[in-house]
Amino acid sequence: MRINLDINGEIRELDVEPRTSLLDCLRDHVGLTGAHTGCEHGVCGACTVLFDGVAVRSCLMFAPQAEGSKITTIEGVTPGPGEMSVIQDAFCETHGMQCGYCTPAMVLVAHALLIDNPNPSRDDIVDAISGNICRCTGYAQIIDAIALAAERLRGANRPVELTK
């Protein structure tokens, strides 16, 4: 079926089978491969995207259901080619990753968290990422990264706009 999806601010006209998950649609039909396939049953969180600004599992939604909403992927929060956001840079600074497979999802979850809560406690961060499994890091440096990003965003000379 033909659908129109608003992905990273751009309307995409797509022809998909209804059974195509939003994840598969993004990866296979739109060519945005930053959302990753981990479990396809909604537990690991590797497929996280922002859906109207909120972190959701793109494997738990069929592509046609996403019509009418704003979808933001990791590609959409990356400022430009080779250019990192404050959050992405913080992940690099603390080495909040190893294999990089869960990383785009973690960055998006951090993004969604910091929009709502610019001054998160450690517990807030732990809770925010608890739906995203990382098998490499034991989470410590991811937590550090999000705390560092929050600190930097708070300390910026001008407010850095995190857009939904």
């Binding site: 990356t78 990192m84 992405q88 992940f91 690099c92 990089g100």
Partner: peptide, 10 residues
């Protein structure tokens, strides 16, 4: 290696 991963460009 981290740069490519934070951008989903692994």
């Amino acid at each position: 290696e981290d740069r490519r991963f934070v951008a989903g460009k692994g």
